[in-house]
Amino acid sequence: MKINSTVLLTLILLFLMLGAGSVSAFLGFDLGSSALKGVTTPDGRPTSKFAATKTNSSQSGSVTFLKEEDILKTVKARIDGKSKAAKSDKQNEDDEEITSKKQKPEEKPKEVVEEKLQPGFPVSAESEGVTMAVQSARYSGGDLLLKVKMENKGKDSVRFLYSFLDVTDDKGRTLSASTEGLPTDLPANGPAFTGTVSIPTALLDDVKKVSLSLTDYPDQKLKLEVTNVPVDK
């Protein structure tokens, strides 16, 4: 009985080992089949490889090379197009400028407005073709401003130093004065020059007329005396 139990136990163990091995083999086969799904045997035929390569190349897109003549033609066309566009813009600008000039009214020359002289003016003096004239008198900023015009119609130029200008009132008193804009040199047959002689108002409280006296420097060949210039306030 003891021997039979041992044999029976051995058979049971052997049966269990065979069953476990069968189950392991089945599971391994099943896992391997699942892993190899979708895997095909590579085609060893050279013609098939060439056809597949050609198909893949055509699908990925072929590279084409442009001819040099075509490139030059394209570049020239673009340059010509830009040149024509620039000429067109320039022409448009010129047309707009011409149109604006036509639309803009022509400016008429300004008329020369003659100076309106005050009563009693001008007061002038002439010597050796040189003229000095007081055109007007007005008070401004605490000074009497005498507008003086000088002109030389003689043959020789004349020089003046205005520090030698004598200004006196109607009572014979000497008045201090300053000049501005009067020329140092008067050219022969030259244009007229205009300047200002300024006299402080404080010196003219009871003065109605003033006189100016000027001689050339250094020759003192001529003497300009403008007398009785009215300066009433």
Results as ranks from 00 to 15, higher is better:
residue 138 R to G: 02
residue 182 L to G: 00
residue 135 Q to M: 13
residue 155 K to C: 05
residue 31 L to C: 06
residue 179 T to I: 10
residue 56 N to D: 15
residue 129 G to W: 02
residue 141 G to I: 03
residue 192 A to K: 14
residue 154 G to T: 01
residue 122 P to E: 03
residue 65 F to L: 12
residue 189 N to S: 14
residue 218 P to R: 10
residue 176 S to M: 10
residue 117 L to Q: 09
residue 15 F to T: 13
residue 5 S to M: 08
residue 121 F to W: 03
residue 85 A to L: 09
residue 67 K to A: 09
residue 160 F to D: 01
residue 163 S to L: 01
residue 151 E to T: 15
residue 181 G to T: 03
residue 204 L to F: 05
residue 96 E to C: 01
residue 18 L to Y: 02
residue 157 S to R: 11
residue 146 L to P: 03
residue 122 P to D: 06
residue 149 K to C: 00
residue 69 E to C: 09
residue 115 E to S: 05
residue 116 K to M: 00
residue 54 K to N: 15
residue 214 L to T: 00
residue 145 L to W: 00
residue 101 K to A: 14
residue 222 L to C: 08
residue 109 P to S: 05
residue 134 V to M: 00
residue 52 A to I: 06
residue 83 S to M: 10
residue 205 D to G: 11
residue 101 K to I: 04
residue 34 S to N: 08
residue 173 R to I: 08
residue 13 L to I: 04
residue 139 Y to H: 05
residue 181 G to M: 01
residue 197 V to H: 01
residue 226 V to L: 10
residue 89 D to C: 01
residue 41 T to D: 07
residue 205 D to L: 13
residue 204 L to A: 07
residue 215 T to I: 02
residue 129 G to L: 00
residue 210 V to A: 10
residue 95 D to M: 01
residue 51 A to D: 11
residue 53 T to K: 15
residue 117 L to I: 00
residue 104 K to N: 13
residue 120 G to H: 05
residue 29 F to E: 07
residue 222 L to P: 10
residue 232 D to V: 11
residue 219 D to S: 12
residue 126 E to Q: 07
residue 17 M to K: 06
residue 153 K to M: 08
residue 158 V to C: 04
residue 105 P to H: 05
residue 58 S to R: 14
residue 202 A to K: 15
residue 94 D to M: 13
residue 200 P to A: 11
residue 43 D to N: 15
residue 19 G to I: 07
residue 37 K to A: 14
residue 184 T to H: 14
residue 172 G to P: 02
residue 93 E to L: 09
residue 133 A to N: 02
residue 155 K to E: 14
residue 178 S to R: 04
residue 175 L to G: 10
residue 128 E to G: 09
residue 86 A to N: 06
residue 109 P to N: 02
residue 70 D to A: 13
residue 164 F to W: 05
residue 55 T to L: 14
residue 28 G to Q: 12
residue 228 N to G: 13
residue 68 E to G: 08
residue 9 L to R: 14
residue 178 S to V: 13
residue 54 K to D: 09
residue 104 K to W: 01
residue 145 L to R: 07
residue 191 P to I: 08
residue 51 A to G: 06
residue 4 N to C: 06
residue 26 F to M: 08
residue 218 P to W: 03
residue 19 G to K: 09
residue 208 K to L: 07
residue 48 S to N: 13
residue 1 M to I: 08
residue 106 E to G: 11
residue 150 M to Y: 05
residue 113 V to L: 10
residue 216 D to Y: 12
residue 174 T to V: 10
residue 94 D to Q: 11
residue 50 F to W: 11
residue 157 S to E: 13
residue 41 T to N: 07
residue 229 V to Q: 01
residue 74 T to I: 11
residue 109 P to D: 11
residue 206 D to N: 15
residue 37 K to F: 05
residue 134 V to A: 09
residue 72 L to S: 11
residue 62 S to P: 07
residue 134 V to R: 00
residue 9 L to Q: 05
residue 72 L to D: 12
residue 4 N to Q: 14
residue 6 T to A: 12
residue 135 Q to P: 03
residue 8 L to K: 13
residue 74 T to P: 00
residue 178 S to A: 15
residue 31 L to T: 14
residue 46 P to Y: 06
residue 219 D to F: 11
residue 135 Q to G: 04
residue 169 D to G: 04
residue 210 V to C: 00
residue 38 G to H: 09
residue 40 T to F: 05
residue 2 K to F: 10
residue 109 P to I: 03
residue 138 R to I: 00
residue 213 S to H: 03
residue 233 K to F: 12
residue 135 Q to F: 02
residue 147 K to M: 04
residue 6 T to G: 00
residue 162 Y to K: 02
residue 101 K to N: 08
